[in-house]
């Protein structure tokens, strides 16, 4: 459960300050599929960084699973990321020259999970993300863009996070492959109850979510729950 209350974020100091977020509040329940949408400069990247515990707000509070993460230091944030957040980025998702399996195992390595347990969980996550056993030992640079993104989704899943945070996950993919990736998210949300927050500037992509929060100039301009959401073809 995510509770964001009156968050602001100011960059710079003195005369040259820039306020990227100007008091944003919302709540995301477990099991929701939310898209945070907005044009560039709307503050959605800043929002993503704060939700992903990569950064902390200037003012306001952010409770993740009942824990106030808005005042944590770097080391505490790293712990929260390890346990509660799974990331899927637009580009450069996987370690190069490293096997698919090793990439997915990596969060569990940092979490200190034992070898047998983490292999089991990584394989399970890879299957959930729509990959088959034959891919496991491929090097990450031998895969197609859609496969890379699904490995990244598996990696985001593997530590059973509260929140999967996807930052423009289809930005580098063609429409068809992007559909497949979005379908993977929908399946994870519907069949496995995963909480997914999708950051995008494309309305087409945002429409795959159940709820769309639109940001503009650092404030929420709309927060709608869609009943006619787009279906991506399932894999």
């Amino acid at each position: 459960m995510i509770e964001v209350t009156d968050i602001t974020k100011t960059y710079g100091n003195g005369d040259t300050t820039f306020q990227a977020l100007k008091g944003v509040s919302f709540t995301i329940e477990d099991g929701e599929f939310v898209a945070i949408m907005g044009p560039s400069g709307s503050g959605k990247s800043t929002m993503m960084h704060i939700l992903g515990c990569l950064d902390i707000p200037t003012t306001g509070t952010y409770f993740l699973d009942g824990k106030d993460v808005s005042t944590m230091d770097d080391e505490q944030l790293a712990d929260i990321r390890k346990d509660k957040v799974g990331f899927v980025f637009q580009a450069f998702n996987l370690l190069p020259r490293t096997t698919v399996l090793r990439n997915v195992v990596l969060p569990l390595v940092y979490a200190g999970v034992g070898i047998d347990e983490r292999e089991k969980r990584a394989k399970h996550a890879l299957v959930s993300a729509g990959l088959t056993e034959s891919h496991f030992l491929h090097k990450s640079n031998e895969l197609s863009g859609g496969q890379i993104q699904r490995v990244a989704i598996a990696r985001a899943l593997v530590n059973e996070p509260t929140l999967i945070l996807a930052d423009e996950p289809t930005g580098n993919l063609d429409t068809k492959t992007g559909e497949v990736v979005l379908g993977t998210f929908q399946k994870l949300n519907e069949e496995h109850g995963r909480t997914i927050v999708l950051i995008t500037h494309e309305p087409d992509v945002a429409e795959h979510a159940k709820r769309i929060i639109t940001l503009r100039d650092g404030t929420i301009v709309s927060d709608t729950t869609s009943h006619t959401r787009r279906r991506a073809h399932h894999i």
């Binding site: 770097d74 980025f89 998702n93 370690l95 990596l106 969060p107 940092y110 979490a111």
Partner: peptide, 11 residues
């Protein structure tokens, strides 16, 4: 990336 998925400074 390593930091995003939970690596600490010490790691």
């Amino acid at each position: 990336l390593r930091k995003a998925i939970g690596a600490k400074k010490a790691d």
